[in-house]
Amino acid sequence: MNLANKITIARILLIPIFILLFPIYPEWLVKNNAIIHHIDLFGIYYAAAVFLLASVTDKLDGYIARKYSQITNLGKLLDPLADKLLISTALILMVSQQLIYTWVAFAIIAREIIITGIRIVAASQKIALQADRFGKIKMVFQVIAISAVLLNNLPFRYITEIRIDQVLMYAALILTIYSGYNYIKNNYRMLKLES
C-alpha cells in the first residue's frame, strides 16, 4: 500500500476519534467521569482540531498521489469515501447538538449520496467521472463552515455580532447544491448515451 492510500486510511481512522471527542455524552456520565466531564467542556474544540487535521490530509494524499504517481483504484475508491464519511459524520453530530438545522445536513448528505450513485453507475459502464472545480470548491467551503460552527463562530464573534459561521454554512449549502446540479448536468448525457 502506497503513502497516499495510507494517509487516506488515516483520515478514515480519525473519524472515530472525532466522534469520541464530540460532547454527546449523557449527563449522568458527564457527572461521574472526569475525562467525559472534560470532553463535555472542551471536547468540541478538540473535535474541531481533529476535523481540521483530517481535512488537511485530503489535500495531502491527493498531492502525494499526483506528484509521485501513486494514483490507484483503491485510492480512487477510498478518497471520496473518506471525504463523505468525514463531512456526513460532522453534520449528523452537529444536528444532534442543534448546531445546524436538520434540513441543511439532509440536503448536503443527500447531494453526496446522489453523486456517489452517479459515480457507481458510471463505473459500472466503465466511465471515469472526475470531480470538477465546483466540487472541490464546495468541499473547501464545507470544511470552513463546519469548522466555524464547531468553534462557535470563533474568531468571527470577536469582530462582529453577525453569525458568520451560519452564513458560511448556508454558502456551503448553496455551493453543494449547485455543484451537484452542475455535475449531473455535465455528466447526464454521457451516462444516458452509454446506458
Rank of each mutant, 00 (worst) to 15 (best):
L154H: 09
V143R: 00
G43A: 09
N153I: 00
T102S: 11
I44M: 12
V56P: 06
M94T: 02
P23W: 03
R66V: 07
T57Q: 01
F156E: 02
S124L: 13
I174E: 08
K59L: 12
L20D: 05
A90M: 10
L20H: 05
Y158Q: 04
P26A: 10
V56M: 13
F141R: 00
A10L: 15
V104S: 02
A54S: 13
I159R: 08
V104G: 00
D79S: 05
A148C: 07
A54H: 04
V104I: 15
K192I: 10
G43M: 03
A171K: 01
P26L: 04
Q125A: 15
M139D: 01
Y183P: 01
Y170N: 06
K136L: 01
Y68V: 08
M1Q: 10
N182A: 15
L86K: 04
A110G: 13
A128H: 10
L173S: 06
Q166N: 15
L3C: 09
W103T: 04
N182M: 12
I64W: 01
Y101Q: 14
R157S: 09
I118W: 04
K67L: 10
I174P: 01
I144L: 15
M169Y: 00
I177F: 00
L175S: 05
A10F: 15
R11Q: 04
R157F: 12
Y45T: 05
I137H: 00
Y46L: 12
L168R: 05
L20I: 13
K138M: 04
L99Y: 12
I17Q: 09
Y45Q: 07
N187W: 07
A123P: 02
A34M: 09
